[in-house]
């Protein structure tokens, strides 16, 4: 069943519709729990598209095992997805900074309010992101410290490699996930892969995780895989940020999710015009690289990668 959650007429002969697909369990008499899979808030992040498709396919194949409602929202920002634009085109707005929205506000705020109203009340929500076009991320769940007690136990069933509990920030109070968690609907933010691309193995990994989470919550009785035991980081000092010391072209030497020793070369920043190596980017600690630069051009300060320190991996 496909339903329009929010809509608004555009200036010339087009209606903007935000749609969801609802998959209902067969013959349920009681009111079942609901899981919502949301993606596409940023129009340049596509990893969640495959997850929506593959999850629905596997559920439909074993429909008798479904004991809950599955709502799939593949495109929260259809105009952004269509125009390869991260924000909402024409408004130059990051859609993930306008929640909880406002039914009395402008078009974007109205859409946000209607979306939030529709998703609210789910037993759990997964908001799937794909980093951006500059960085590749290992499948991970990010949790605001304010909501960790409720969310970490759920995240551990999602088959991700890493759970990152980050500090609360006033700026993040206007995100979709914060608005839901603040209002009592648990929402897990998934980050994986890279913008404008689909990494099928990450998608498959997350689909296994979503089915595992549904099983844990009593919404799925089908076979599930034992989830990976994620590394959980909750101290700011667990993560080491690597920023470019110089503008140039970043050429990596290592792969994503590679274990590194202090001093190992992660890559070089080079100048193709002069032929000079501007910086040898070296690992400042022993650890594992969970974020790596994908887009080669860097400015001074551009993020090259993030390392999780060895001590955290061992816990």
């Amino acid at each position: 069943m496909i339903k329009t959650v929010a809509e608004v007429a555009l200036p010339v002969d087009e209606v903007l519709r935000i749609k969801k697909r609802r998959i209902l369990p067969d013959g349920s008499e009681s009111v079942p729990k609901r899981i919502s899979i949301v993606t596409g808030i940023h129009g340049d992040e596509l990893e969640g598209q495959y997850v929506c498709f593959e999850l629905a396919r596997q559920i439909e194949e074993n429909k008798k095992c479904l004991k809950g409602i599955v709502d799939i929202y593949p495109a929260m920002n259809p105009l952004g997805i269509d125009s390869v634009t991260r924000g909402i085109p024409a408004f130059d707005l990051d859609m993930n900074r306008i929640f909880p929205g406002n039914t009395e506000g402008n078009m974007t705020e109205l859409l946000a309010a209607n979306i939030l109203k529709d998703v609210s009340g789910s037993a759990v929500v997964l908001d799937i992101h794909a980093s951006n076009i500059y960085l590749t991320e290992i499948p991970q769940i990010r949790i605001n410290r304010l909501h960790k007690e409720e969310l970490v136990p759920l995240a551990k069933h999602c088959n991700v490699d890493f759970v990152w509990i980050h500090e609360a920030s006033t700026v993040l109070e206007s995100t979709f996930a914060y608005s839901l968690n603040h209002a009592g609907t648990p929402c897990l933010v998934v980050e994986m892969g890279v913008g404008m691309r689909i990494t099928k193995e990450y998608g498959d990994q997350l689909v296994d995780g979503i089915l595992g989470l549904m099983h844990y919550m009593g919404m799925w009785t089908g076979e599930t895989k034992t989830p990976r035991k994620p590394i959980v980081s909750e101290n700011a000092e667990d993560v080491c940020f690597l920023n470019a010391a110089s503008g140039g072209l970043f050429i990596p030497d290592v792969k994503h999710w590679e274990k590194l020793c202090k001093g190992d070369r992660i890559g070089r920043i080079i100048d193709p015009l002069s032929g000079q190596v501007l910086q040898n980017v070296e690992s400042p600690v022993d650890g594992i690289l969970f974020t790596i630069r994908e887009y080669p051009i860097v400015d001074e300060g551009s993020l090259i990668g993030r390392l999780l320190k060895k001590e955290v991996m061992a816990v």
Partner: peptide
């Protein structure tokens, strides 16, 4: 010259 609905 163009406007959207629900816009102040």
């Amino acid at each position: 010259p163009i406007t959207y609905a629900e816009t102040a």
